[in-house]
Nucleic acid binder design. Sequence first.
DNA 1: TTGACAACTTAGGTACTCCTAACTATAATT
DNA 2: AATTATAGTTAGGAGTACCTAAGTTGTCAA
Lengths: 145, 145
Amino acid sequence: MARSIPLTASLEDYLEAIFHLENKDKVARGKDIAEALGVAQPSVTGAMRSLAGKGLVNYEPYGLVTLTEAGRREAGRIAEKHRIIESFFVQVLGVDIETAQRAACKAEHALGPAVCERLLAFTNFIEKSKQDGRDIAGQFEAFCE
Amino acid sequence: MARSIPLTASLEDYLEAIFHLENKDKVARGKDIAEALGVAQPSVTGAMRSLAGKGLVNYEPYGLVTLTEAGRREAGRIAEKHRIIESFFVQVLGVDIETAQRAACKAEHALGPAVCERLLAFTNFIEKSKQDGRDIAGQFEAFCE
DNA sequence: TTGACAACTTAGGTACTCCTAACTATAATT
DNA sequence: AATTATAGTTAGGAGTACCTAAGTTGTCAA
């Protein structure tokens, strides 16, 4: 069972971008990856070579890019981390979505599974409090006045 | 009024280490900086040159390192960010201190002032709830069972 | 005062990530 | 089928951040 080799923040970003493009367009084209990440095309070529070398993407020169099984698993983990962090920022802290997204993009590379798990549980706890009528996030808003 | 130039995560780490060493030992010696960050000495020399070029430390070859006014201000900001994040992890999420410290070291470079401000307010809110007898962190613990 | 030792620097090298400019392959159009 | 536009690649280069090995400085002790 392949234990996931630690990736650099940059490669995680590529993987995540491919994941989202596959979910949206079925395939990931180099140009779209470049655009999604705000990098030039040659940077994508290099990154694909690197990810292919780690067995995370299927890549042939001039071909389309697809995630391997391992790549999809890893990308899913990263995307979920992102989602957890962003949700926490928005739903608990009440940060605006723009800021939350930017912050989550960076923080997703910094927080390990243990912290993320706790963060998810906490956000769920806060959301549940809304249904219970306790609305802790609302209390926090009032506290901030 | 000098607006703080964005530093790399690495340079922020050096600045923070010097800040803590100055607070502890009055001065920062290269060897101790290297040890604190787990890097080799030549890495420190290079970093000091870079920080000196940005006007954040006073550095002369073979001399002791001290923070400039601007450097102390910046280092203080970073150290405070670290403190805020770590406190949140421990006091709100209930993460163990070891893990919290490691995570905070990384996250401090990822979170901007807006998010950190909210995070601080939220941690204060949770702490206050403990005094009120509502103890939201305690409720969260129970929720996790 | 002269070693000897610790601290520091220089030199040289690797890895990563990005860039621009120039070239090549693919696919669409006519 | 030839042309042309688009996508992708190679080549070459820059900046950051590390490292080891080798040389330099400074200080303290005999």
